[in-house]
Design a protein around this nucleic acid. Structure first.
Lengths: 127, 127
DNA sequence: CTGTTACCTGGAGCGCACTCCAGGTCAAGG
DNA sequence: CCTTGACCTGGAGTGCGCTCCAGGTAACAG
């Protein structure tokens, strides 16, 4: 079988599979769990991790937040919020704030890219 | 006077002024000089740095490259190229390559932002 | 001349986000 | 049963890009 297990449309994934699917390293996966970004990961009787579809979804969000430059500390705050059901407003606030930061990053990159292209054009002109 | 000196439309700037104008810290300015990203900075008889307009322009490029995620090592390569006159083609190649990386960064951020907005919308729906 | 502020140097230290390691365990294939 | 490879743990180490520090000097205001 391709995956570590399957019941009722739900799948279980080995650490290796998760690493491949998420693009995170095994070490990073363990690291995230250690610091509390990811908890409740199931284990086989022998002690090996078995990630669920839910874990995979959560890792997708974590990856999204990291790749867009959210510091781990902030991600921990978000993870903390997600442990409590009635924090939806706070979660939205946190994500909106981050979205703003992402918009700013994009704007900054676009502005600097203009600078960069200007420099390239200059070199092309004198080259 | 506002600036550290002025002859013939060219200005000289104190470290403090440069820090303010470029947004780089004094320590970073010294660090860049130490590692060879910036050389030939003038000194007063007493040993204080006097940055020229040329230095400011160069620092602008350095800042552009850093803010768009170029590693220091690569910036050193670029600085090295800029010490030799007949490397225009190489400089263009390096900058084009970096521009590509910037485009990819922007695309990635935009894609992740879509993910992020989706999550926010989901929270708004259930909130 | 004196005080204050900005600047100088070499070198150590820091925060972040992993990444690697040693020494061991589990589980599937043959 | 034995081998092999993926996985386990706690803890140490790494690379990057600064940032801070101590002890000292320059320059300018009053």
């Amino acid at each position: 079988m391709d995956t570590a297990g399957r019941i009722d449309g739900m799948s279980l994934y080995t650490p290796g599979e998760v690493a491949q699917r998420t693009g995170l390293s095994l070490d990073t996966l363990r690291y995230y769990e250690r610091i509390g970004l990811l908890d409740g990961v199931d284990r086989t009787p022998g002690g090996r991790r078995q990630y669920s579809d839910g874990d995979l979804g959560w890792l997708g969000i974590l990856r999204c937040l990291r790749e867009t430059g959210m510091p781990i500390q902030r991600m921990l705050q978000f993870a903390e919020l997600c442990r409590d059901d009635d924090t939806i407003t706070d979660r939205i606030a946190l994500l909106e704030q981050h979205d703003q930061s992402v918009r700013e990053q994009i704007a900054m990159l676009q502005a600097q890219r203009t600078h960069l292209r200007g420099k390239i054009d200059y070199y092309r002109a004198i080259g």
